[in-house]
Simulated assay, not measured.
Amino acid sequence: MTDRSTAPRVIFLGGLGRSGTTLLERLLGQLPEVAPLGEVVHLWERGVLADEPCGCGRPFTACPFWRDVGERAFGGWTSMLAERVLALRHRVDRTRRLARITHEDLPEYVRAYRRIYQAAAEAAQARTVVDSSKHASLAYCLLEAGVDVHVVQVVREPRAVAHSWCRTVARPEDGKPMTRWGPARTAVHWTAQNLALELLAVRGAPVTRVRYEDLLATPHETLTNLAQDLGFTSPRLPFLHGTTAYLTTAHTASGNPMRFTAGAVELARDDSWLRGLPRHHRSLVAALTWPLRARYGYGRDTA
């Protein structure tokens, strides 16, 4: 197991799924000495237990990077370890516990994440790791336990998010459809996750907000400003040419299907919700997500 005392910086991408966290993680992962890890919260079930593929395309247990991380962090991955962390997550890492996140099992639960972050930084020879787990409750756990975390809150027009959650999309890992939610459920979760991240900032935690639409409209400016907020001095973005990003292969353990994409990616907005989400659903989501929707600059009909 790793015993280095210098812990890496952790960039934690928070928000509701289908808001652009995977894209942002892939872009941040192109910066020097930054290792994108995917949704570490799902690594235990989807990676260790289910052996789903890494972003490089290999099964999790066959990926040299994750084998190295497992050896450094725990002396190897085991189902017993994964099941233990999942049991701890069920007791500690819950949205309903945010008001009293302190728990007797919190140190053990967060220790597993510390070891992964440290081992991944060593394996990738990186100073910073990116965890796109999204769940505000995990961000609370990490910060409560003293992990050096900078939270990036990724927001997207909630009606666009609702439309995305309504669509049927096949998981590239197994061809099964991704989870679908109705508009009302999406709106409630969008509000809950973003409100929880807002409260983190009120408590004094380092939180930077990025709008998905701004990232796509002005990627160079938005990513440069974010990188500077995160402490990268004079960040260079040679992988960005206008609205085209050139992505290398990433060892991400879980996340949106885009984690498998490499090569040229056109950063284009998807406004299909304006036509694809029925008007009564748009009105429902708009009502349920006010006033945060207005706070983030989303108008009545456009993002």
Rank of each mutant, 00 (worst) to 15 (best):
T2M: 06
T6M: 12
P8N: 04
L13V: 08
L16E: 10
T22W: 00
L24P: 06
E25A: 10
G29N: 10
G29P: 09
V40K: 06
V40T: 13
W44V: 07
W44P: 00
E45Q: 15
V48A: 05
A50K: 11
E52A: 09
C63E: 02
P64M: 07
G70Y: 08
A73K: 02
G76T: 04
R84F: 10
V85A: 00
D93P: 05
R96I: 07
R100N: 05
D105Y: 09
E108W: 00
E108A: 11
V110W: 08
Y113T: 10
Y117C: 01
Y117R: 09
Q118F: 00
A123G: 05
Q125N: 15
R127H: 11
T128D: 00
V130C: 03
D131A: 08
H135F: 14
A136Y: 08
S137G: 03
L142Q: 04
L142C: 08
A145C: 07
V149G: 06
H150D: 13
V152K: 03
Q153C: 12
V154H: 01
V154R: 03
R156M: 04
P158H: 05
A160I: 08
V161C: 07
R167G: 00
R167A: 12
V169K: 10
E173Y: 00
P177I: 03
P177K: 07
M178Q: 11
M178G: 10
W181P: 00
G182V: 11
A184D: 05
A187H: 05
V188T: 13
L197M: 08
A201Y: 08
A205L: 07
A205C: 14
A205S: 14
P206D: 07
R211H: 01
Y212Q: 11
E213N: 10
D214H: 13
L215R: 06
A217I: 04
P219Y: 06
E221C: 02
E221A: 15
T222K: 10
N225T: 15
A227H: 02
Q228C: 10
P235C: 10
L240S: 08
G242K: 07
T244C: 14
A245M: 01
Y246W: 14
L247E: 06
L247V: 09
A253W: 00
P257K: 07
F260E: 04
T261L: 15
T261W: 11
E266Q: 13
L267C: 05
D270S: 08
S272M: 03
S272Q: 10
S272K: 09
W273E: 04
P278N: 11
R279E: 14
H280L: 11
H281Y: 12
S283W: 15
V285D: 02
A286C: 02
W290K: 04
R293K: 15
A294H: 13
G297K: 07
G299M: 05
D301N: 09
D301S: 13
A303F: 13
